[in-house]
Design a protein around this nucleic acid. Structure first.
Length: 551
DNA sequence: AATTAAACCAACCGCGTGTAT
DNA sequence: AATACACGCGGTTGGTTTAAT
């Protein structure tokens, strides 16, 4: 080792390590730190070291084991490849779905997501997601499955509503609020993107998109959708926003929904195969487009089991892992594309980042002020939301409105237009009223009950019942989220739900999934699942405005 | 069969945060 | 309180494999 030390000029990298002229690091002891692929010998050394000394203190590995790797590299190698219980192989359909769900809630918090996926690493999840982002971007398909988006919104609303109730006592709920915010932000962007590509905007009865965002600043119930003012702008990258150029973001940094509305409304039915009830059936063009989409983008990384097995352990880089589990795992995702299908147009990063700009500070202050003013009259807000609703009270009550079976997720894309918005109006089956939310189920259980596996080539879920059609009317309508159905339902459920949510959130904080699980099992699932826009009205604003990391 | 493009994945890099001194 | 260090996270890069032409 020592002999490898070079006397040449040594640079220092960001971590203070010296670099030789080939870019290899040089430890403080003068040992050249190797870079690049790990060898089996190095793996063995590292494994042996960890067995003896445990994890952590990674910089000591090089010193004590003679391994010519920096501590950071050792940690990464251990975490991603050598540590026990790592699950290798393609992601299962369940995992794919969970990833989408988690991403909807957390954004690019790979490590946190990995915590929910035993045996999976943040890097693995990140790679998986990013490859699909790219693919979906090219295909113009949704980022999240509709039910994931909707559910996340619901949950975020629960949380934010709770935050509203705790308005005067936010000190201990910073995380929860932040979490809520993140959910909102991510999903909101997702929904916005959908608005840009989905035909539903026209369906928004009494509010244009800009009214949702901007007018809401004044007194609407939609203010909670105003994108963040928070500094987490790094989370979503511009690269995830392919559909809309920055030129469509108004000078306030908000996404000009009305513009989208105007531009998109005329294209809606035709472009997406989603037909207005007043519009004749899908055009052949849609069908063709959709079919094209299917044929294009569906080489998912989730490969059939056999392939998954094949791809594993390609080299010494991969330690032996328990492939046995794969043998028993569900058939590879036909679902292969399950996630891809829903990767939607990227979030509007401009909106996000811009909203955090100083120029919006005043707006946020106003929002906060009004939020506090209004928070005491939540019911009043609900009433107002109700008035704007286009749904009848009875209709929205069905919790199924915002739930889809996982299978539908895949089918959704499969049937959708090239833009990912399939003819949901016709094809989505109704979900049972007691359909579980994603969070109501633990990962291991999430997909057990209602996932219908499809073979990769299996295109279609055949619409065959009226109730299916019924359900989709709401589900497919992203704008519905912003509109009145939720508010309508919320009117009835708001009070009790808010209290429950508050209590749970207060107790559990971070783990919103658990929060909602508990809520659901407490017999409030029906109401909670229809928790709507109304609940995300002003009482939510504090959650946004109180973000601890606000400047 | 050869070439090119796309997809995948391991590893690296920079930065932020927490902790020890 | 200030500084240095260790660690972890998220983003990016580059090499390899696979698929398409």
């Amino acid at each position: 080792m020592e002999s490898e030390i070079e006397d040449g000029l040594l640079l220092k990298d960001q971590n203070g390590s010296k670099l030789d002229d080939e870019g290899n690091g040089v430890s403080s002891g003068g040992v050249i730190l190797k870079k690049g692929p790990w060898t089996s010998a190095e793996d063995a050394i590292l494994v042996d070291y960890v067995k003896k000394h445990g994890e952590g203190n990674w910089n000591a590995v090089q010193k004590h084991s003679g391994l010519s790797r920096c501590g950071k590299s050792c940690r990464l190698r251990w975490a991603n490849h050598l540590r026990p219980n790592l699950k290798k192989g393609a992601f299962t359909a369940e995992e794919e779905r969970l990833i989408a769900e988690l991403h909807a809630k957390m954004g690019n918090k790979w490590a946190r997501m990995a915590a929910h996926l035993p045996g999976r690493t943040d890097n693995e999840i990140k790679n998986y997601w990013n490859t699909r982002i790219k693919r979906r971007q090219r295909a113009g398909l949704p980022l999240y499955p509709p039910e994931v988006s909707l559910q996340a919104l619901q949950e975020s609303q629960h949380a934010q509503s709770t935050a509203g109730i705790n308005d005067g006592d936010r000190g201990d709920h910073g995380f929860q609020q932040k979490n809520s915010y993140e959910i909102h932000d991510t999903i909101f962007d997702s929904l916005k993107a959908n608005l840009g590509i989905l035909p539903y905007i026209p369906e928004l009865p009494n509010l244009s998109a800009d009214s949702i965002l901007l007018k809401g600043l004044g007194s609407s119930h939609y203010c909670n959708f105003v994108p963040s003012t928070l500094p987490h702008h790094k989370r979503l990258q511009e690269s995830t926003m392919p559909f809309l150029g920055s030129n469509v973001v108004n000078r306030n940094g908000y996404y000009p929904f009305d513009q989208i509305h105007n531009n998109a409304s005329n294209k809606i039915a035709r472009s997406f195969g989603m037909h207005s009830p007043l519009d004749p059936g899908p055009s052949s063009q849609n069908s063709l487009s959709y079919g094209h989409s299917l044929s294009n983008g569906y080489s998912s990384t989730s490969k059939p089991t056999s392939e998954a097995l094949k791809m594993e352990l390609p080299s010494l880089q991969y330690p032996e892992t328990d492939l046995g589990s794969w043998g028993t795992s569900p058939p590879p995702p036909p679902l292969t594309e399950s996630v891809d299908v829903f990767i939607q147009s990227p979030p509007n990063s401009a909106l996000e980042s811009d909203s955090s700009s100083p120029q919006n500070t005043g707006l946020l202050d106003d929002m906060l002020h009004q939020a506090k003013t209004i928070s005491s009259s939540k019911n009043h807000c609900s009433d107002k939301s109700s008035n704007s609703s286009t749904a009848t009270p009875g209709e929205g009550a069905d919790s199924s409105t915002f739930n889809m079976r996982e299978t539908e997720w895949e089918d959704y894309a499969d049937h959708v237009s090239p833009f990912g918005a399939t003819s949901m109006l016709n094809e989505y089956p109704a979900i049972s009223a007691n359909g579980n939310s994603l969070d109501e189920q633990l990962p291991a259980q999430v997909f057990s009950g209602n996932v219908v596996k499809h073979e990769p080539g299996e295109q279609a879920w055949t619409p065959n019942s009226e109730n299916q059609t019924m359900s989709m009317l709401d589900i497919s309508r992203i704008d519905t989220l912003l509109a009145s159905d939720w508010a309508e339902q919320n009117l009835r459920n708001n009070q009790n739900q808010t209290i429950n949510t508050d209590a749970v959130a207060t107790l559990l904080g971070d783990d919103l999934a658990t929060d909602y699980k508990q809520m659901s099992t407490a017999g409030t699932s029906a109401s909670s699942q229809v928790w709507g826009l109304g609940s995300c009205s002003w009482n939510n604003m504090p959650a946004v405005c109180q973000m601890p990391d606000l400047p």
